[in-house]
Design a binder for these strands. Structure first.
Lengths: 381, 381
DNA sequence: AAAAAAAGTGTGTGCGAACACACATATTGT
DNA sequence: ACAATATGTGTGTTCGCACACACTTTTTTT
């Protein structure tokens, strides 16, 4: 067992003993071949399912692989296989500083890192800014004969349509950012928007509960295209659920607005002013990544106690607003890491042939002025 | 440049073009040898600084390596080098469910993962529960001739003393969890306790500011040994700084208590009751990982509006209390990931010979009932 | 029954780096 | 001057796996 005086846990040391044992009898395909009474070529054939192998031999080898818990040496495997992994990447188009830059940076981190380690990875990028372009871009990837696809879903209809083709052509794909339930994806890497909304609700509730009288709360969905804001609405739902669950309707009044983000300008002061007509809210929840667009207007228009302002995503513009305290909190779901993990998962699945989790949910992080990371936070790894 | 219609960023595509180019002319030591007019053996010698190489040849090779930006193929390197990496691990002893289990789990994650990839890693564990044992345990690692050491510092005096020996014997070491400024460590992987304290202060401030009259706030340092709570005090300092910076002393009254954690029992109801004599606080900040120990007492003793309760670390006992809402918020600094990164950094430094960051600060995460991860969250990777 | 095709199997080479060994040349000692 | 050492340098083997090729045996075809 374990000899450490204070190691009552006993889990720890035992697990480690296991780990050590595991690597010591590190078995190779040669070992398997010997035990099965055949050559390494044959073992190779059953492992990769190529060429012809007599049924009884195949079964014997398979049994031995299972029995010995054979795990191929990844280093040798990568070293020997000279083929390059072509990754299709299908994401919304973006400008610098926008949300979608983050997953893209994560993808780059991963490719950089793994290229440096002898892996041959060739990314093929396709960007879309409408459901129609989503489809043509996605089909282009098929035509380019990529080995796998990393994508974020567009509209429900277009996504299922594209995925149908991928499925038919046996192209593995990974969904990042938002999930569409039931798709035959290798994995989903992203977040739970309802949970996000509920977390924000908790923050706002705790921070406004001691205010006397009825509290006015806004939810603001600011989006480039009003028709593709599924994730925003899901967050709003989660937000509402929290208050409903706690039966706080009597103490709170809610107003929800959908605003259009018209490029550089965003909602103008006048638009915001119009909303303020009904009264100054005690808290505002901007469901997308565009809090920074209204922070300035609010500061200008509201001279009394300014409302609590909460938004999403660690993009530069938002981080600045948190630093000068015109935005109070930012929620984020490790956007950059999502991209990183997507590439890594592809490598693990397609090269290492490991099994990867069907659902990889990111942690939900809350940032405020005191814990916001420095600007050029390289989060690779 | 970039042909994507909506890719205004231009960063992205260019960077990728670079990445692709890089791996295509992937140079090997053979290439260097040819260009330098010598054999691969000689190149090998200058890379590893072993054997004798004529000064002019050495410089030529070095120049070519630099010019071509040679990056060794990690897969080949690991495959060829059969030596096992022996890692000394020097951490406080712990029981199951305590804070130190988390970094240990992270260490295990990493060793598991890398063992599975053909790396030979042998961990040697030493646990300590006092500064004296820290020293003897640390020296034992030296005697066991480990290749590198992962450790969390004990007292200032003992740590610098031990590190002196490590330095003299040229043993690289990585500090996790808490930093001691100025030590010649390979890297520090952990958190900034002052920042943590300030973040908590922000939360408590925002959540109590609308309460009328003077607010009473507690800080509770609950520790096993009252003499080794440096990190707790640093958090308390950060906490205080926030209120000082904002000049909120007139609206807030602060009381700080140091309590001893006597094993299973923790602070008793009676002890907590004694503290309550001076009045019921509006918020309580427990600076260590033991909020759960007073949550029950508080619930029993306070029947009116219960105080806001904030603590640290995602240990099971705390997570339960967050789920039943007797603890409001938990702060954590990715304890498990710290262990993971420590092992990974050792591998990158000692096997891959990469340079690693001197300071790897973890993100500071805020958890509440709505965003707390599920219990058996495997966070490897 | 002979030829052709298919099924089944073993050997050999290469991936890129690490390291041991053998060998060449230069420097020193006696 | 010759051995003894020190200083350089090149070759060959190995790691575990992928994949091409050659080969034997069996089955099918005509």
């Amino acid at each position: 067992m374990c000899e450490h005086t204070y190691c009552h846990s006993s889990v720890f040391c035992c697990i480690f003993a296991l780990a050590v044992e595991q690597h010591q009898n590190h078995i190779r395909i040669k070992d398997i071949a010997e035990k099965a009474g055949c050559s390494i070529g044959t073992v190779d054939r059953v492992i990769h399912n190529r060429g012809k192998v007599a049924e009884p031999v195949k079964n014997r080898v398979l049994a031995i692989i299972d029995e010995l818990d054979y795990r191929p040496n990844v280093n040798a495997r990568v070293l020997a296989s000279k083929k390059t992994l072509t990754l299709g990447i299908l994401l919304p188009s973006y400008r610098r500083g926008e949300y979608w830059e983050l997953p893209n940076l994560g993808i780059r981190d991963a490719i950089d890192r793994y290229s440096g380690q002898g892996y041959q990875i060739r990314p093929v990028h396709e960007l879309y800014n409408s459901p129609e372009k989503f489809h043509t871009a996605g089909m282009k990837l098929l035509a380019e004969n990529v080995d796998g696809i990393i994508m974020s879903p567009s509209s429900y209809k277009e996504t299922t349509r594209l995925v149908r083709y991928y499925f038919q052509h046996n192209k593995p794909f990974i969904l990042i950012d938002s999930d569409i339930y039931g798709l035959p994806s290798l994995s989903f890497i992203g977040k739970d928007p309802v949970q996000s909304g509920m977390t924000v609700a908790r923050l706002i509730h705790q921070m406004t509960r001691h205010i006397g009288g009825e509290k006015l709360i806004w939810t603001l969905n600011i989006s480039k295209h009003l028709d593709q804001m599924y994730a925003l609405l899901a967050r709003e739902s989660g937000f509402m659920s929290y208050f409903a669950d706690k039966q706080l309707q009597d103490h709170y009044r809610f107003r929800a607005f959908d605003l259009e983000d018209r490029g550089q300008q965003g909602p103008t002061d006048r638009e915001v002013e119009a909303l303020l007509g009904e009264g100054i809210p005690h808290a505002i929840y901007v469901t997308g990544s565009r809090v920074f667009k209204i922070a300035r207007s609010l500061r200008k228009l509201i001279t009394t106690e300014k409302p609590l302002l909460i938004g999403h995503d660690l993009i530069r513009a938002n981080m600045e607003k948190v630093r000068d305290e015109s935005v109070d909190f930012l929620i984020e779901e490790e956007a950059r890491r999502q991209g990183y993990l997507a590439v890594e998962s592809m490598i693990r699945s397609l090269i290492h042939k490991e099994k990867i989790g069907k659902k990889q949910l990111m942690n939900l992080m809350i940032y405020t002025r005191e814990n916001i990371p420095p600007d050029s936070a390289e989060q690779g790894g």
